[in-house]
């Protein structure tokens, strides 16, 4: 296995512990505090679903970029990676509107423990989206020149993991009312 890909798998393994700790803690507290249901009803299922759609679609463009890179088509890979970056940007735009509405309604990170978990988990995930976008920008720039095409898959693996985390955050924060 190429060193770069092995490194990404190790990174993902460490991220599992980070997000696993946050989500595991949230799950335990949620089950022990039925009153949190009174707070979680205020999260927007539709905005969460829209962001799930956006991330799933960006994962599609990421894997298609990998497919193109595997064929040696760096230009197409780069275009698809920029589409993925666009998906990440769209996700953050939706998230910023969502948070702005919630914060202006008085639901802040200090309102109570539910909202502390909500902003911490979603915020940590958002930081990973931003990190993934930055990595993709560098990789896409090289890929457009036909350079370092093996990195397209590595960046994609990380992006899929970020998508995976959201797949679990969505029901935990938005659906379980």
């Amino acid at each position: 296995m190429p060193t770069g890909r092995l490194a990404v798998w190790w990174l993902i393994a460490s991220e599992i512990v980070i997000f696993g700790g946050v989500l595991g803690s949230y799950l335990m507290h949620r089950l022990g505090h039925p009153e949190w249901a009174n707070q979680s009803v205020h999260t927007s299922t539709w905005k969460g679903a829209l962001n799930t759609f956006i991330l799933l679609t960006s994962s599609l463009s990421a894997v298609l970029a990998h497919n193109a890179a595997s064929r040696g088509d760096g230009k197409r890979a780069a275009k698809l990676m920029w589409a993925t970056i666009g998906g990440g940007a769209a996700f953050l735009v939706v998230k910023s509107f969502e948070w702005a509405g919630e914060i202006s309604a008085g639901y802040t990170i200090t309102s109570n423990t539910f909202w502390s978990f909500y902003y911490t988990a979603a915020g940590l995930h958002g930081l990973h989206v931003i990190a993934g976008m930055i990595v993709m920008m560098f990789v896409a720039t090289d890929a457009a020149k036909g350079k370092e095409l093996q990195r397209v898959e590595n960046a994609g693996l990380y992006w899929h993991f970020v998508d995976l985390v959201w797949i679990f955050l969505f029901p935990l924060l938005y659906i379980a009312k």
Binding site: V63, N67, A69, S70, K147, L149, R151, E153
Partner: peptide
């Protein structure tokens, strides 16, 4: 890291790259 930079065959796993784009869609 750049030892396989220009080798398309090394840009991913060869076996599963047989999937066409339509599969992922």
């Amino acid at each position: 890291m750049s030892d396989n930079a220009h080798a398309p065959a090394a840009a991913g796993h060869a076996p599963h790259d047989a999937h066409p784009d339509s599969f992922y869609i």
